[in-house]
């Protein structure tokens, strides 16, 4: 899926200008890393991209569809093709691991066909192979709240695999993990994205992770894009300048 963001703007009802005329293009299978200080509009941009916040100006085109013009069922169908990995706590803690993974297909198949009790054997097998891919096949029956932070984030990746997404949006996917778990989760995420030819938009805060995983680097500040460069051509002082007050 090709993503084109055109002159996107978002002003919140209280008058805060969160994003201010952002444009960029993402080809199918491309990976981009977003960086910038707190409050620079990264998270608002992410919410606009998955249709959780309506932008106040501009357009988001995914292939031929304009996300900002879609409502109801059509919007839900588009969202089903966008996989999200948030910071922690996006799983339903009281349910089993396999149930959380099955819910990845809920956008496509609806509630009853993804409820563990009533889902088809084929779908449950698919959920198990997604868990196998993230290395948690033996924990399928465990209660999700009993898992460690790194394991939970891998369950979220398995859920995204179930979703059969074309684009992955990751908002600080490893912010709450210790360095080792963070590296494991990032490695897994990048491998899977590559393996399936998905596009990836990833917000990162830790610079060591940026240095290791970023390919195309977009720097944001005060609601605008400051630079958009291949990561290996991006001078360190331009990154530092983003965080200077």
């Amino acid at each position: 899926m090709e993503i084109r963001v055109e002159q996107l703007g978002k002003i919140y009802p209280d008058g805060t200008r969160a994003i201010d005329g952002i444009s960029f293009k993402l080809s199918p299978g491309e990976q981009v890393t977003l960086i910038g200080p707190n409050g620079c509009g990264k998270s608002t941009l992410m919410k606009c991209l998955i249709g959780l916040e309506p932008p106040t100006a501009g357009a988001i085109r995914m292939d031929a569809l304009d996300l900002t013009a879609l409502r109801g069922r059509a919007l839900r169908r588009l969202r089903a093709r966008i996989g999200c990995v948030f910071q922690q706590m996006n799983l339903v803690p009281n349910l089993s691991v396999i149930q959380n993974v099955l819910f990845g297909a809920m956008g496509r198949l609806g509630y009853w066909r993804t409820l563990d009790l009533t889902a088809s054997a084929a779908l449950r097998a698919q959920a198990m192979s997604a868990l196998e891919r993230v290395g948690l096949a033996d924990l399928g029956g465990r209660r999700t709240s009993h898992l460690s932070g790194g394991q939970q984030q891998r369950v979220a990746i398995a859920r995204m695999l179930m979703q059969d997404a074309r684009v992955v949006i990751a908002d600080e996917p490893v912010a709450s993990l210790d360095p080792r778990a963070a590296a494991e989760v990032m490695d897994l995420l990048c491998e899977i994205v590559e393996e399936r030819g998905m596009s990836l938009i990833c917000i990162l805060h830790q610079m060591d992770l940026v240095a290791r995983y970023a390919r195309r680097l977009v720097g944001m500040r005060a609601g605008r894009i400051e630079f958009d460069l291949p990561a290996d051509q991006c001078p360190g002082e331009r990154i530092e300048a983003l965080y200077r007050s």
């Binding site: 998955i50 249709g51 959780l52 919007l75 839900r76 169908r77 588009l78 969202r79 089903a80 093709r81 966008i82 996989g83 999200c84 948030f86 706590m89 996006n90 799983l91 339903v92 803690p93 009281n94 349910l95 819910f103 990845g104 809920m106 956008g107 496509r108 609806g110 509630y111 993804t114 409820l115 979220a156 859920r159 979703q163």
Partner: peptide, 30 residues
């Protein structure tokens, strides 16, 4: 209830019914 799991499910394109019975009700059941 924590709004984040529900938000995550809406982000995958689930209907309102599915979000309520998939994320909110299981959290409240105990």
């Amino acid at each position: 209830t924590d709004p984040r799991p529900a938000q995550a499910l809406s982000a995958t394109g689930c209907s309102r019914f599915a979000v309520v019975f998939g994320a909110i009700v299981p959290e409240c059941l105990p």
